[in-house]
């Protein structure tokens, strides 16, 4: 589904390699967790996948479509939720949702059904008539999540999605991710919440200083670690 082949990105005349020759192959129907300490290269990698940052080297494909050669085709398969929900704060919630749906060409019937479902689920249905500037951080996050789900993306990419969500919404989001994958969709997300990664992900990659230092199912990671232990201990051991 999502393939990264020898992808690199450097900042400041190539002095600092933010992402250093990484390759990943994420399969359809998989929930893939992307872990790493602050500044390890998680967000840089995600930005390269969604078209915000051009890789210096390497190829990124989604369903065999090269993200940087056929951007429109690739982008219509992805939905992206950034770590900081900066959105048009002078629009009303509903205006933002309609705007995003128009860009993906979601039919009227589809968008009505999905809006009803997700707005109810995230408990922001009564707020969509207000302007976004009046929303709390969490409400904005929920609106961005809803907008990202309207197009029923083949690949759902999230950067730190749990930050700012209340426990119930975080639970709901996890359910949504699970359901999407059961329906053959793919989810790729970065997180610092190791517990979520441990319970939810089919496979996990740990990135440190721009390099993938561990990759596999939870079971595989445990086996490769020196002592059989929790993800937290594995993480701490590997990223030391």
């Amino acid at each position: 589904m999502l393939k990264l082949k020898n992808v690199s990105k450097a900042y400041g005349k190539g002095a600092i390699k933010a992402v250093d020759n990484i390759s990943l192959d994420i399969r359809p129907g998989e929930i893939f967790g992307f872990l790493g300490p602050n500044g390890a290269g998680k967000t840089t990698t995600i930005k390269m996948i969604v078209g915000l940052l051009k890789p210096d080297e390497g190829v990124i494909t989604i369903d065999n479509v090269n993200v940087w050669e056929e951007p429109l085709k690739a982008k219509s398969m992805i939905s992206f939720v950034p770590d900081n929900p900066e959105i048009y704060d002078r629009l009303k919630g509903i205006e933002y949702l309609n705007f995003i749906a128009d860009m993906y060409g979601v039919s009227k019937e589809d968008r009505r059904r999905k809006m009803d479902y997700y707005l109810d689920l995230f408990n922001i249905k009564d707020a969509v008539g207000d302007i976004i500037a009046s929303y709390s951080h969490g409400m904005k996050q929920k609106l961005v999540l809803t907008s990202a789900l309207l197009s029923d993306p083949k690949l759902f990419i999230l950067d730190e999605p749990m930050v700012g969500l209340d426990p119930k919404s975080a639970f709901n989001l996890k359910e949504i991710m699970r359901k999407m994958c059961d329906g053959g969709r793919t989810v790729f997300f970065s997180t610092h919440v190791l517990e979520v990664a441990e319970k939810l992900c089919d496979r996990i990659a740990i990135i440190n200083k721009g390099k993938i230092i561990a990759l596999g199912t939870m079971e595989e990671l445990r086996n490769s670690a020196e002592r059989s232990q929790s993800l937290e201990n594995i993480f701490l051991e590997l990223t030391e």
Binding site: I94, R112, M115, D116, K125, D126, V128, G129
Partner: peptide
């Protein structure tokens, strides 16, 4: 808010 009134293509 009734989304059926507000969602337009």
């Amino acid at each position: 808010i009734d989304t059926s009134d507000l969602s337009r293509e």
